[in-house]
Simulated assay, not measured.
Amino acid sequence: MKRDEGIERLSACFHWTEFDGDDKRQYLHQQFVYDNVMFAVTRGLSWSAVGQVANITKDLLPKLKGLKTSEVICLAKDHLSLIEPRLSTAHHAVLLDYIVKTYVPHQRLYQAFLNGETGLRRIRCELEIECPPHPWPLSEGTDAVELEQQRDLKELSLAQSRKEAEIKELKETAEAQMMAALRASLESLPCEGWMSRQEVEELLRSFLQSQGDIIMEALMKEVCLTEDLLSQKSQLVQRHLTNQPVLPGKNCVVTPTKSKKKRS
């Protein structure tokens, strides 16, 4: 007898009121009971026990709604203990194991079934796997040491450009300050009359002093920027010398050894 025929014949033996009006849920309920009944038959249980298994599993499934796995196991164990005459320890353990293994791996599906969520939509995602690009031949690659040197030179070039831009801005600022000092000195000259020699000398001394201070400050800042750039270059050269591989045959000193003669 085929499975569908067996489920149909089993359904005629009970009143399926648990999911009345919902054919899909009712049919899944009948499948659950049928599978457990057929397992009991294959394990050699008496027909009386098989009938009780059908009643127990029919009553059991609706009660599993919202239960955790541990609670499901306890409830199934209690229901199997109601079978009379009492099942042997082996039959009880086998039936419990089958019910648990049938339900637990599909617990989320059964819970959706028990909660009436049978109209869920299936969402399908397509995953496209692309092969990695084929690597270029090693002969067309760049040596690791050479690549590092190129990166360092590029970094040094950028640093030099920044320092040169800062020095240029520094000179422009100094020139602007000198012109401002010159205008201030010219504006301090009297519009009418004459100035004494002492006043002229004092004005020139003040002007030259301010110009000298501006030039000295600009030169000191320029020296600091230049020293920073030279320090970076020195560190780069030192690093390249440190990382430079030693070729075989170089820096090797052979120490001659004297052979000892044995005395006869």
Rank of each mutant, 00 (worst) to 15 (best):
Q211L: 14
V145W: 02
C131Q: 06
S70L: 12
A40D: 08
E128G: 02
K233D: 11
P248G: 04
R25A: 13
L120P: 03
E172C: 00
E164M: 01
S48H: 09
M216P: 02
A76D: 00
E175V: 04
M216V: 10
R263P: 03
L170S: 09
P137F: 02
E126C: 03
S70P: 00
W16S: 06
K250Y: 13
G249E: 10
K24M: 08
E146F: 09
Q177I: 08
N36F: 07
Q26V: 00
E172G: 00
F207A: 14
D97M: 08
L189W: 09
V200M: 12
A93K: 15
F19M: 10
V33K: 03
E146L: 11
K154A: 10
L95K: 07
G51T: 02
G21D: 06
Q238R: 09
E128C: 04
R43T: 15
K250W: 11
K65N: 09
M178A: 14
L203C: 12
K171A: 05
A93G: 08
E169H: 01
V237K: 15
K2F: 07
C125D: 05
K260H: 10
G21T: 13
S139I: 13
Y34V: 07
G6L: 13
F39G: 00
E175A: 04
K58S: 12
L156N: 01
E8S: 15
Q209N: 10
M1S: 11
S206D: 14
Q111K: 01
E140K: 10
P256N: 03
H79L: 11
V145G: 08
S88Q: 12
Q177A: 14
Q235S: 01
R197H: 11
R9T: 13
A12R: 13
G193D: 05
M220Q: 09
P62K: 03
C13D: 06
Q177E: 14
D143G: 13
S206Y: 06
E166T: 02
R197G: 08
L208P: 00
T57I: 01
F19T: 13
G193N: 05
E8M: 08
K262V: 05
W16G: 03
L45P: 02
D4L: 08
D228W: 02
L95H: 06
L219G: 03
K221W: 03
K233A: 14
S210R: 15
S210W: 00
A184P: 04
M38P: 02
D213L: 12
C125L: 14
L28M: 10
M38F: 12
D23V: 15
N251A: 10
D35A: 10
M195N: 05
R124D: 10
V100H: 14
I56K: 11
L182Y: 01
G51Y: 04
T242C: 06
N36P: 05
A90L: 10
G6F: 07
A40M: 07
D143A: 09
A49H: 13
E201H: 07
R263V: 10
K163H: 01
E199A: 15
D97W: 07
L80Q: 00
V94W: 08
D228A: 04
K258F: 09
C13F: 05
S259T: 08
A90W: 07
M38N: 14
M220I: 05
R263S: 08
A90Y: 11
V253W: 03
T255M: 07
L189H: 04
G21L: 13
Q30S: 09
E130P: 01
E222I: 04
T118N: 05
